[in-house]
């Protein structure tokens, strides 16, 4: 980019009062995205923020960018249309676990399969908040909600696995209460060409308070989360003295210094590995056996739909004799009637 745009996060705040519940994780995500946008050196008018329905989908109203608060589940399809209509835009889709993975599941997987250049921010609080507390497609089996008074009898989606299954090229995970880290992740997602999916572990303070607490509690953060960075060893813990290795084809937690393990034995994160095997294993890690993986888990460059669309149009245009409607109308089989 030729010019440097000196935006501050304030430039992205709208005049509308933010109406999420006090203590809701969404506030922090809003701040992190506004900070990320200010840093990205993209023109203010070139951002479009598209959302579906749900608490998090009120997001566009709190941004001063172009925004479109649409209908339940359809944000991925609408955002795809926006990006294809004007590929120069940076398009963000704000969605939740119900919006993206239940009613909008089809659009979610197909956007990922096409690899359209969207930044999908998936707020996962494992509950339906706006309708006041019913189970969602990410709610754990057995969990009691208003529509599962005796506990749910279904297994949840793991968003990252769904992304990989749909041929996803970018998947990252972050936590609402870690503003600095999430800002970094959002910037990486925006910089990535293709569909980037960021799962944000987000706390619903009213209907599912503390659902992610074991992972997100700042006191145990370093013990319970592993912050993955491309090219760096997979180390975690307060003293960064534990790491991940592959043993018998599976991930395993080891302690540096025990059993002759050195840092050199620890796996080095390769987010760009096209093969998704290790990425899937990292996505699957759960407490208490493992720390939960955070950061950019997968970032693989591949053909981008909207770019291919533009290239194809240019290619066909360079070969075709038809350049305007008059030529099309008079092409092929025509005949003249003279009177």
């Amino acid at each position: 980019m030729l010019e440097t745009l000196n935006y501050t996060p304030k430039d992205f705040k709208s005049e509308n009062e933010v109406r999420w519940c006090p203590g809701c994780g969404d506030h922090a995500v809003l701040n992190a995205i506004q900070k990320a946008m200010a840093n990205l050196n993209i023109k203010h008018e070139d951002y479009a923020v598209i959302s579906g329905i749900g608490c998090s989908s009120r997001f566009p109203y709190y941004m001063s960018t172009y925004g479109f608060h649409t209908i339940h589940g359809r944000a991925a399809a609408i955002a795809s249309g926006v990006k294809c209509a004007n590929p120069r835009l940076t398009v963000w889709e704000i969605t939740g676990d119900g919006d993206a993975l239940a009613i909008g599941g089809n659009h979610f997987i197909h956007a990922i399969r096409r690899n359209i250049d969207l930044n999908i921010i998936l707020f996962n609080n494992k509950i339906y908040g706006l309708t006041k507390g019913q189970y969602s497609p990410t709610t754990d089996r057995g969990f009691v909600t208003k529509t599962s008074p005796a506990g749910t009898i279904e297994d949840p989606f793991v968003p990252g696995r769904l992304v990989l299954g749909a041929g996803g090229t970018f998947f990252a995970r972050c936590v609402d209460n870690n503003l600095k880290h999430s800002q970094e992740i959002f910037e990486a997602a925006a910089a990535f060409k293709g569909t980037s999916v960021v799962e944000v572990l987000q706390n619903c303070v009213i209907f599912n308070d503390g659902v992610h607490e074991a992972i997100t509690d700042t006191k145990t953060r370093e013990e319970h989360q592993i912050f993955l960075k491309h090219g760096e060893p997979m180390l975690f813990g307060n003293n960064r003295d534990r790491g991940l290795v592959l043993a018998n084809g599976k991930l395993k937690v080891v302690r540096i210094g025990e059993d002759g393990i050195t840092e050199a034995d620890v796996l080095v994160h390769d987010a760009e590995d096209e093969d998704g095997f290790l990425h899937q294993s990292l996505i699957n890690m759960k407490l208490p056996e493992f720390p939960v993986a955070m950061g950019v888990i997968r970032s693989v460059s591949a053909k981008v739909y909207n770019e291919a669309m533009e290239e194809q149009i240019a290619e066909v245009q360079s070969k075709s004799n038809i350049r305007n409607m008059d030529q099309l109308l008079n092409s092929g089989n025509t005949w003249k009637v003279e009177n």
Partner: peptide, 25 residues
Amino acid sequence: DLGVKSFQAEDEIAGICTAIGAAFA
């Protein structure tokens, strides 16, 4: 050749929704 952006969607809903997105843009 006339610059048409044709998008074969995953379903009827996505058909109109991508069009609505394109209209917005």
